Simulated scan of single mutants.
Amino acid sequence: MTSKEKRGAEEQIKEAEHRQQLEKRQKEVELKEKEESIKLAAYKREQAAKEAAHKRKLEEEEVAHRRKQEEEDMAHHREMEKQQKESEEKEKQRKHELDLTQAGLHAPANPNNPSPIMVPQHRKFPTYKAGDDTKAFLENFERACLGYSIPEDQYMVELRPQLSGPLAEVAAEMPKQQMNDYKLFQTKAIYRMGITPDHARRRFRTQKWKPDVSFPKHTYYIGKNYEAWISGHNVKSLEELHLLIQMEQVLDGVPEDITRYIQDGKPKNLAEAGEIGARWMEVAESKKATVKGNEYPRGHTDHKPYNRG
């Protein structure tokens, strides 16, 4: 074999070895890709199973909440029907007694046939405990009074025994000459518990969904806080609603003194709000100029151009 043929044979051998190494590497890459594909498929199946389990849990919670809400609604409906029936019976009895009085009839003095003894009707009212929803309690109490046909000037007589905690304190603090003024109590109770339109607005804006809260409950509180905010400002038209939302944006970040000054001016639109704010700034600038132009005793502090109250 010549040296040339020998070199050719060696190159063929090297080329064959190189191809074998390439094929080996290719097989290793394919094997590794196959393993990664298997791992990825397993991970996707695991994630899909977790998502399905979480979805089932949410659906079960929603179904349970809906069932509970339906049961509470049915119980409330039965209670209202019971109260309505008791009220109708009481009205029939009162009408019967009135008819007897007008006809001049009296019960016969016959010991063998005595008149039936009328047992006073036992009224049931919701009771308030510290931590309960104040507005829901007052609304249920008013519904109970309507069911029993109780006049509003008697609401406080029935309400006081049902109170405890901060609401009992509100009732005790009312002036004696106004102790039976239910509207006054309602106003004081709402402000004592912090249920103001601004409080409802802040809760509406900051209400965020949490994983442990069902969506029906989340949306219920969103709507409740929105209604409390809007109704608290006596919004009765679309224009008033627009102005309320726009003023919220205008006063965002504005100092409290300026905010109250603008609100006290009762602007009817954004232009008037801007003019009122500009007047406040003019007064503030004039006050500042006056302070700089005069000498005050040591320790003197300038007054704000507008103070609450």
Score class of each variant (00 low, 15 high):
95 K>E: 14
124 K>T: 09
262 I>P: 07
9 A>I: 07
252 D>C: 07
5 E>Y: 10
62 E>V: 12
113 N>S: 13
296 Y>V: 13
115 S>R: 13
193 M>R: 14
210 K>I: 10
109 A>H: 14
261 Y>D: 08
240 E>C: 00
294 N>I: 06
5 E>V: 11
294 N>Y: 13
263 Q>D: 01
62 E>W: 10
265 G>A: 09
303 H>T: 14
139 E>V: 06
166 P>C: 00
22 L>E: 07
179 M>F: 01
38 I>T: 08
69 Q>W: 03
55 K>A: 13
124 K>M: 12
200 A>H: 08
13 I>E: 10
132 D>N: 12
32 K>G: 13
89 E>P: 03
72 E>T: 14
55 K>S: 11
181 D>V: 02
138 L>G: 00
124 K>S: 15
214 S>W: 09
300 H>F: 12
289 A>P: 03
56 R>C: 12
38 I>A: 11
18 H>L: 15
38 I>E: 14
239 E>I: 02
303 H>E: 11
299 G>C: 10
198 D>V: 02
139 E>Y: 05
253 G>K: 04
237 S>R: 03
30 E>P: 05
200 A>N: 03
45 R>K: 12
209 W>F: 09
224 K>Y: 00
272 E>W: 07
86 E>G: 10
301 T>S: 10
92 K>C: 12
260 R>D: 12
46 E>H: 06
152 E>Y: 00
238 L>M: 14
93 Q>R: 15
35 E>Q: 13
222 I>K: 10
288 K>Y: 04
198 D>A: 03
85 K>T: 14
163 L>F: 02
27 K>N: 07
64 A>R: 07
28 E>G: 12
256 E>T: 10
2 T>W: 00
9 A>G: 05
10 E>Q: 04
277 G>N: 06
276 I>Q: 02
276 I>V: 05
228 A>Q: 08
289 A>D: 07
257 D>S: 07
164 S>N: 06
50 K>T: 04
254 V>L: 06
236 K>V: 03
268 K>D: 03
139 E>C: 02
213 V>K: 08
3 S>R: 11
203 R>S: 08
41 A>C: 06
184 L>G: 00
26 Q>K: 03
68 K>W: 04
136 A>I: 14
251 L>V: 06
103 A>S: 14
281 M>S: 07
23 E>T: 12
225 N>P: 01
129 K>H: 15
172 A>F: 06
168 A>G: 04
31 L>T: 15
122 H>Y: 13
78 R>N: 11
105 L>S: 08
300 H>Y: 12
102 Q>C: 10
94 R>Q: 15
177 Q>T: 13
282 E>A: 09
241 L>I: 05
272 E>A: 06
11 E>N: 04
111 P>W: 03
249 Q>C: 09
112 N>V: 03
164 S>A: 13
190 I>G: 02
114 P>S: 06
52 A>C: 08
219 T>F: 15
137 F>R: 00
216 P>V: 06
81 E>Y: 09
202 R>F: 08
229 W>V: 00
218 H>R: 08
70 E>M: 09
177 Q>S: 09
116 P>A: 14
251 L>P: 02
148 Y>F: 10
